[in-house]
C-alpha cells in the first residue's frame, strides 16, 4: 500500500514536470492538431527537430506551442525530451550527453547504410517501395467508421 502511494505521488510529479518544458519533434513529420485526437483538424505540419513548448498534457497528447507561435495538440510518441540538433555547428560533445542531446543524421545514418549496402550487396528496392505505402490518419479513421469499429480514436 505504501509503495503504491509512493508510486502515485512520483507518477503525479513526473507528469506535472512536462508543463513548461521544451521538447523536440522526433519523427520525420508530425501534425499539430486542433484537438487531442487523430480526428482533430491539422493546424500545422512540424518537421524533425522542431522545438515546441509543452503547455499541458493529457491522455497521450501534449498541447504545445511552436517557435512561430502556433499552438495545438501533438501525440506524445512524436516528441522527445531530448534536444535534437539538425546542423553540426562544431563539436558539442563536451558536457552534452545522449540523454540531453541527439544529433540528427549521426550514428547509424544514411552514410552508414550506404557503406553497409556496398559491403553486403543487399537489395533495398522493396524497402524503398514499402515507404510509399502510407495512408493519412483521416483515411484510417474512415476505415474504422466504415467497418462499424467503435475504436478509441484519440
Amino acid at each position: 500500500m505504501k509503495r503504491l502511494l509512493i508510486f502515485l505521488i512520483l507518477a503525479f510529479f513526473a507528469l506535472a514536470l512536462w508543463a513548461g518544458s521544451m521538447m523536440s519533434v522526433q519523427v520525420s513529420t508530425a501534425q499539430l492538431r486542433g484537438t487531442p485526437s487523430f480526428l482533430g483538424a491539422i493546424a500545422a505540419e512540424l518537421a524533425y527537430g522542431d522545438r515546441v513548448e509543452v503547455l499541458e498534457s493529457g491522455r497521450g497528447w501534449f498541447r504545445v506551442s511552436t517557435e512561430s507561435g502556433q499552438s495545438g495538440w501533438i501525440q506524445e510518441s512524436a516528441l522527445s525530451s531530448k534536444k535534437i540538433v539538425l546542423s553540426t555547428g562544431g563539436d558539442i560533445s563536451s558536457g552534452a550527453s545522449t540523454e540531453e542531446v541527439a544529433l540528427a543524421g549521426k550514428g547509424f545514418n544514411e552514410d552508414v547504410e550506404r557503406e553497409y549496402r556496398a559491403q553486403t550487396d543487399l537489395d533495398f528496392t522493396w524497402v524503398d517501395r514499402m515507404e510509399t505505402f502510407g495512408h493519412p490518419a483521416e483515411e484510417l479513421v474512415a476505415f474504422l467508421k466504415d467497418g462499424d469499429l467503435e475504436g478509441v480514436i484519440e
Binding site: Q26, V27, S28, S80, K82, G107, F108, N109, L122, D123
Partner: peptide
C-alpha cells in the same frame, strides 16, 4: 540512450532488406 527513432529507422530498413533477401 544511444539510438534515436531516426537511427532505429535505419536499423529497421537494413533488417527489412535482410528479411527480403
Amino acid at each position: 540512450e544511444t539510438l534515436t527513432p531516426e537511427q532505429e529507422y535505419y536499423v529497421g530498413r537494413s533488417v527489412a532488406a535482410n528479411i527480403l533477401a
